[in-house]
Design a protein around this nucleic acid. Structure first.
Lengths: 208, 208
DNA sequence: CAGGATCCTTAGCGATACTG
DNA sequence: CAGTATCGCTAAGGATCCTG
């Protein structure tokens, strides 16, 4: 039984919150920012949400034209309207970064780390492009550093300079500089120096 | 008894929602964007929130350094950190404008209308500045059109070209062009043509 | 009277078990 | 795998009642 309460307020902010203000709704949207996801993908990325609540949120968000379920693949993907939330979510995430960290154990989905990575990376614009194959939680992503910014896409890269297989928490620790690659159980193939370059691109201050 | 549940997710978006994701929290922030407000002001602006929930939200938001209560005046005001939410809320409101209107009766606070007005107004940059004295729900605001944009501040203007006393819904209807000034119970003093100019500034398309 | 605090009811949430 | 059914818990909603 989906939620059907409203703020009954004509303001755009209140009407937006009528759509995406229920618990877990914006985190579901977050998980779909980089790639479509199945029901089980979302459950794995959001271990705190129970299946009935997730089903409710997906139904409501589909009714409000934020996302759509593809009947063939069973995957949920954002609609154009849902995708318009991306800059808002990114800005909200930047704001939330300043908040105190939740006490562990805290979840960290692949999408979360990749969104952070994409936003925090400031690679040297003059350096040649690099392509990474990232395998996180068994799923493959393509990361490309080029033209001074990072681009993330789902799926296999055509060619990759380096391949890194690990989990979101380890990747996050690497990027934060709180772990050395050799001290983790990450599997690397290809040019290891490209990993250093990635870490430095995230560590260096925003040139803007 | 304040809410103290967390998404337990390290992502900045989730941590932001741990602070401002509870019901009514962002609408409280909205009400404080333009001016400090008392507890009773907030209750009036948000007729759907019950006093215990409002008290809980204010406590939580104060604990998280989003707002602060001034002991002398009893007014709640945003902190610097809370004010950083302004562009996010404005963007969320723009997104929400596209959502279907809630069935009436829907609330419409003075802050809501003034936020909409400030964002939607595109006055002729070449025209001379105009200052309005707006009295909404018994509270006085200063509105100034100058340099191609609108500025809203709480309190009496030093001098005003025109004074308009009405309620938020009537002002909204005037701005939307769905009501004529002469057909409302709005009280006007000063230069009535300045009201027309305001309506046109809102009606005209965004030059940007 | 403003600014809450208390009480009670309801509805959304969280966890687990179950089904096509 | 992709949800549905069930149930106890907790936050939200509404009214009333304190306290300066």
């Amino acid at each position: 039984m989906p939620t059907s309460r409203s703020y009954r307020d004509s303001c755009g902010i209140a009407r937006a919150l009528d759509v995406v203000g229920e618990r877990w709704a914006l985190l579901v949207v977050r998980e779909l920012l980089l790639a479509p996801q199945r029901f089980s993908d979302l459950r794995h990325a959001l271990p705190g949400v129970s299946s009935n609540v997730l089903a409710d949120r997906l139904r409501e968000l589909e009714q409000h034209d934020v996302l759509r379920r593809d009947p063939d693949s069973g995957r949920y993907d954002l609609t154009d309207r849902g995708r318009q939330l991306e800059p808002i979510l990114v800005a909200l995430g930047d704001w939330g970064i300043e908040a105190p960290q939740p006490p562990p154990p805290a979840a960290l989905s692949a999408t979360s780390v990749l969104l952070f990575l994409r936003g925090a990376a400031h690679p040297d614009p003059a350096a040649p492009p690099v392509t990474y194959r990232l395998e996180l939680d068994g799923r493959v992503w393509t990361l490309r550093l080029a033209d001074g910014r990072a681009e993330v896409r789902p799926g296999e890269p055509p060619i990759a300079d380096v391949s890194l297989r690990t989990d979101p928490a380890t990747l996050s620790a690497l990027l934060a500089g709180s772990a050395m690659l050799t001290a983790t159980r990450a599997a690397v193939a290809g040019d290891p120096s490209a990993i250093d370059r990635l870490v430095r691109a995230v560590a260096e201050p925003d040139p803007g």
